Amino acid sequence: MDEVEFMRGRVYGADHDNPGPRPGRVYAQLVGGPLDGLLLDITDLTGPECARGVSLATEIGRYGPGGRSAYGPRPGDPRSFDWRGDVP
């Protein structure tokens, strides 16, 4: 299994022993960029917070350790967050 297959279906920030989605939670799929294919738990985000998008810490983005990747909801599909770029 390659790295891309391994990461699919995993939740960003989840415990390594239980990396999959949990019942009763709402998830968006991250599309593109270094976190492509991961799920993001958006259960506790308000409508305006979801609309703003998120900046997620990642060591595999353009800026390496300490960098972040920005994702925002896809127009018409709030369950998909598209990559907007990496930031230091």
Rank of each mutant, 00 (worst) to 15 (best):
M1P: 09
M1E: 14
M1S: 11
E5I: 12
E5F: 00
E5D: 09
E5T: 09
F6Y: 15
V11L: 01
G13Q: 01
G13I: 00
G13H: 00
A14R: 10
D15E: 02
H16A: 14
N18S: 15
N18V: 05
R22S: 15
R22G: 02
R22M: 08
P23A: 12
P23D: 08
R25T: 09
R25H: 07
R25K: 15
V26R: 14
V26A: 13
V26F: 11
Y27E: 05
A28C: 12
A28F: 01
Q29P: 07
L30P: 02
L30V: 10
V31L: 08
G32T: 10
G33H: 11
G33F: 03
G33Y: 02
P34D: 14
P34A: 15
P34E: 12
D36N: 13
D36P: 00
G37I: 01
G37D: 02
L38S: 06
L39A: 02
L40M: 14
D41T: 04
D41Y: 00
L45E: 03
G47T: 08
P48M: 05
P48R: 05
E49G: 15
A51G: 04
R52F: 04
R52E: 15
G53R: 02
G53Y: 06
V54E: 07
A57Q: 13
A57L: 15
T58R: 04
E59M: 06
I60V: 15
I60W: 01
G61S: 06
G61N: 07
G61A: 15
Y63E: 06
P65S: 04
G67V: 03
G67W: 02
R68D: 02
S69P: 05
A70Y: 05
G72V: 00
G72L: 04
P73A: 10
P73F: 01
G76T: 09
D77N: 13
D77W: 01
P78K: 06
R79D: 04
S80E: 15
S80F: 00
F81C: 11
D82L: 07
R84S: 04
V87C: 02
P88W: 09
P88M: 10
